[in-house]
Amino acid sequence: MARTSPAEPVLRVEKPGLLTAIQDLGRPGHRKFGVPPSGAMDRFALAAANRLVGNPDGAAGLECALNGPVLLALQPCLVAVTGADFTPCVNGAEVPLWTGVYLAAGERLSFSGRRWGARCYVAVAGGLAGARWLGSLATYLLVEKGGFAGRTLEAGDTLALAGPAPRPLIAGRHLSRRLLPVYGRAPALAAVPGPHHARLDRASRTSLWKSPFEVSRDADRMGFRLQGPQLQLRGAELLSIGLTAGAVQLPIGGQPILLMADHQTAGGYPVILGVTRAALPLAAQLLPGEQLTFRESSVSEAQDEWRRLRAALDLIA
C-alpha cells in the first residue's frame, strides 16, 4: 500500500472557525524561564482523538473553540473529533464524536452547530505538522510560537501530516460515552485544598465548597476569572510562587482565578485550591456564563481518578 510521505498536505482550511489552533500535550519543563506548558486545554479529549486514529497520545491535532472549522481532505485520511459537541459532519451528514472517521479526498469535515461544550479536538492519523518551539508543536499565542506559524488557523491554510499515517487506516474505533470524564453542565470540579486554603476564614471556606461559581467573560487559555461569593483571606501579602494549571488563585478582590494551559508560571496571589488533572477536562469545556462547583478531593483519590480515566484510553484497540 502507498505510504504518505512526511509533510504531505492533508487538509485545507476553508473556514477557520472562531479560534482554531494546533495543540499537542504541550512543552513542560520551561516554566523556570516563564514559559507555560500550553497544549490542549482538554488533554483527555486530545489524547483520545489521537488514540482513535492510531496516533501516540501527544501527536498534534486541532483545538477548535466555540464553533469549529470547515476542512477539505486533500487526500484520504482518518480523523476523529472529540471533546465538545459542535455537530461534526462529513459532506453535510452528521458523524459521531469519539469515533475514527474516514475522509475520502475531496470530502469536507464541518460543524453545523454547538450543542454542548467549549472546545472540540480534531486528530488526523499521522499527526499534524507544525512549528516546533522548545520541543512542542503547541500554539502559544502570547509569543506567536508553535503550531501553524504561531497563530490561529485562517482560511486557505494547508495542514500537512507530521509523518506517515499508521496503515491500514482503521475507521470506526470508538470510545464509549460511559468511559469519558463526567462532562456536563455545571460540573463539580474535584480540587485539593491548596497551600493557602487555611487562610480563608470559616464563612469563606463554606462558600468555597458549597456555592456555585460562574465563569466570567474574562476566560481564555491562560485562565478563567470566576464570579461567586466574596472570599476573605487572612495573613500577609505573599511572595510569588511557581504555579501550575489547575491552581486557583485568590486575588485581593476576592474573586478566584482558575489557571489553565497557558497560565502565568509564577504569581503572588494565594493559591486556595488545586483542581485535579481529571477535573481539568471538565473545566476546559466551560464557557463564560456557565457554572461550576468545587468538590473536595484528596491527592490519592485524585490520582486514582486520573488513572481510571487514562485506563479508558487503553480500551481503544
Binding site: 480540587a191 485539593v192 491548596g194 497551600p195 510562587i241 511557581g242 504555579l243 501550575t244 489547575g246 491552581a247 493559591v271 488545586g274 483542581v275 485535579t276 488533572r277 481529571a278 478531593s297 491527592v299 485524585a302 490520582q303 486520573w306
Partner: peptide
C-alpha cells in the same frame, strides 16, 4: 502542601 494531584509547594 499539594497543588492539585501532580504538583506540590
Amino acid at each position: 502542601w499539594p497543588i492539585g494531584d501532580a504538583a506540590l509547594l
